[in-house]
Write a protein that binds this DNA or RNA. Structure first.
Lengths: 144, 144
DNA sequence: TGTTATATTGTAATGATTACATATTATACT
DNA sequence: AGTATAATATGTAATCATTACAATATAACA
């Protein structure tokens, strides 16, 4: 399901929300709240950071956005809520999707009494760009 | 390798560090910095939060501790640096270990040019205790 | 068009983590 | 054992992401 699909029926549509939704629709860059804020601000300079967080919360509640904890510095958001996994660059923090259905079933005993609701595989490594420029004093976050 | 093994040869040993190391050795509770601070403080009331963070940084640099991003509220630390995965309760944030070697190899194409250095599977769910007490206004972090 | 619930904004608060300057101390070398 | 010194501990302040809140504005619906 697309993030925008039928969303106007679920939430009150405002120009700010429309701009955030437009930015997120089909976006595979796994933006942080700040990324979203900075991008939307170009068209709506009056938008508030709080609105970005509020909208993300609303979208999370409606399962239209997934919050990722893979970046140790900030939360990242993914409008693709279908099952998939992620690969992050330890240097620039660029995240890419991994669409593989790994066998991750575990027994009840292994689950130690927990009821499991979801699974996520995180791959950590170095992206092609950072591998090339390693050992040159780099350490900057990706800003594609 | 145990966390304490040969560690005195690598770092300057102090009573504070010894207390932190003792707390971490064999600890499977995946404590936060605050957990460590509060526990160590019982014996060493003068210990500083900064010392806890500094020591954790030192241990990370020496690969004696692994920093976990699985809890969205705070970083958690694991003295077991051998390959394993984790299961977290969405309610109380209690984390348990999963010692299963899942097949997680991906092709070069699937890695999209990244050099992969490690893999981590995160399971999310509800622990037995929280499942029982659900819908009773609970929402509290685990404090075993 | 008016009403009203809901959203937006700006600012302030919070909470985790880091930076920094000063005081202390473990270690190595006489 | 005594001392030098490089590393560590401490306390406080700063930073950064995120959340709380109160006042204002507005989309949706009658």
């Amino acid at each position: 399901m697309k993030i925008l699909e039928n969303i106007e029926k679920k939430i009150k549509m405002t120009p700010q929300r429309a701009a955030i939704l437009k930015y997120l629709e089909g976006n595979t860059s796994h933006p942080s709240a700040e990324d979203i804020f900075e991008s939307v601000r170009k068209k709506y300079p009056m938008i508030s950071f709080t609105t970005v967080y509020n909208t993300l919360q609303t979208l999370k509640d409606l399962d239209r956005v997934r919050e990722l904890n893979i970046d140790d510095e900030r939360k990242r958001y993914d409008p693709n809520v279908n099952l998939h996994h992620h690969l992050i660059c330890n240097n620039c923090k660029k995240i890419v999707d991994i669409f593989i259905d790994f066998p991750l079933d575990i027994s009840e005993e292994e689950a130690q009494g927990y009821t499991i609701s979801c699974r996520h595989v995180e791959f950590y490594g170095l992206c092609p760009k950072c591998r090339k420029t390693k050992n040159k004093g780099q350490g900057n976050r990706n800003r594609d």
